[in-house]
Write a protein that binds this DNA or RNA. Structure first.
Lengths: 213, 213
DNA sequence: CGTGCATGTTACTTGCGGTAACCACAGTCT
DNA sequence: AGACTGTGGTTACCGCAAGTAACATGCACG
């Protein structure tokens, strides 16, 4: 039968695909997210049309590339989040894992956060449709963990999602800023964010002699 | 002297510039952030080189455009943040103001969050350098307010900045997600986020019968 | 042998950012 | 009046990257 053949070819195609992705990875890491298809193809030792046969268009390639890294990052985040420890410790570990990841490979991070957007024929874009899918996935993931671990009373599911996306956004924006300016150590940043989540904003006293009242 | 003449010409140029910006605004709002220079020029009733004479390059135009909206948004946020009210109320008002803004004009919002990035000759990009400047500005602004209003003890300045960027990121990501899925009303979202900032995450009890321990 | 069929190539089209060179009209100087 | 300058405008082009069409090649199967 040709089933065995088909699987055989399938495997070959998959291997090819993985090789191509790795080449794309190298060149994107080297040249940034603006890497051209020509450059990627050259790095892979082939030419453009093959890339298009495999991934459809640039968006497809980038999506596949992003999925790899996103999955990897999400795995490590899950590990930190699921560790058997106090909640505060888990939160800090998760924050630290994320920050360590973006610190170690800023190029990857930058690529993930700004996937191809300027592609022509891009109409019909409902807001947020192709806005960083990594953030969305992380938000959903975190929401799930929150919802299944915490007792939030009625409306817990929606609240968990709000918090999931909110916390992820906090982590992301703070990390982005921190990576650009490096105003403090990673540990300090982690502590600061955890403190924020732990309600220190609400607990802090008004500054004496402040403006207004 | 030609000083009066110069100011005269300056004014004419400024008026022109504003007209061009308004045309650009219209077309960006209509066609999204991927709007071409040609389209913008056509909308303004002129041709490309004039745009380039005024704004240098596409990045310049987009920066000018973004500055207008960013300034406007920041103004309304400042108003909400500086209102004479309890802290929680102020926070909720600020969140609501932001969400109302992005809800009212999602196209503007989307444009602001993803300014041109794919320009060629883009190497030497330190991470975060051209990543959404609106977020940065909002973060810094909020940090300043926090720092001058709250008594945070030692290291208050850095902590305030961490919180500023963190909170802004939270607001942004949650808003982005919410705008895409509309899973709940604006008021519910505001409440949820404020609750998060008020430490309900830390205060929540473990779910009974949860997985693991 | 020829017929598929996957893999690869060259060479092209299209569209965009950006620029050079040219045009026209206002005012100014002599 | 007529040459001189500068400002707002245009056409026509370059370079480059995405994406495609059409052609070539190698290999299994009847």
């Amino acid at each position: 039968m040709d089933t065995t053949q088909r699987t055989e070819q399938q495997r070959s195609a998959d291997r090819r695909r993985r090789e191509l992705l790795e080449a794309a990875d190298r060149v994107v890491l080297r040249d940034g997210p603006g890497a051209s298809m020509n450059a990627i193809a050259a790095e892979a030792g082939i030419t453009k049309p093959i890339l298009y046969r495999h991934f459809g268009d640039k968006g497809g390639l980038y999506a596949a590339l992003a999925k790899r890294h996103t999955d990897a990052l999400l795995d490590s985040l899950r590990a930190a989040l699921d560790a058997p420890a106090e909640r505060r410790e888990r939160v800090e570990a998760t924050l630290d894992t994320y920050l360590a990841a973006i610190e170690a490979r800023p190029q990857v991070y930058r690529f993930l956060m700004h996937p191809a957007e300027g592609s022509p024929g891009d109409q019909g874009f409902d807001v947020g449709k192709h806005s960083a899918p990594l953030l969305r996935r992380m938000g959903e993931e975190l929401a799930q963990v929150i919802e299944e671990r915490l007792d939030l009373g009625p409306g817990s599911q929606q609240l968990a999602r709000v918090w999931g996306h909110g916390i992820v956004g906090m982590m992301h924006a703070a990390g982005d800023w921190w990576l650009g300016e490096r105003p403090c150590s990673r540990a300090e940043l982690v502590r600061g964010l955890a403190d924020l989540l732990w309600g220190r904003l609400a607990a802090a006293g008004d500054k004496v002699g402040g403006p207004g009242f």
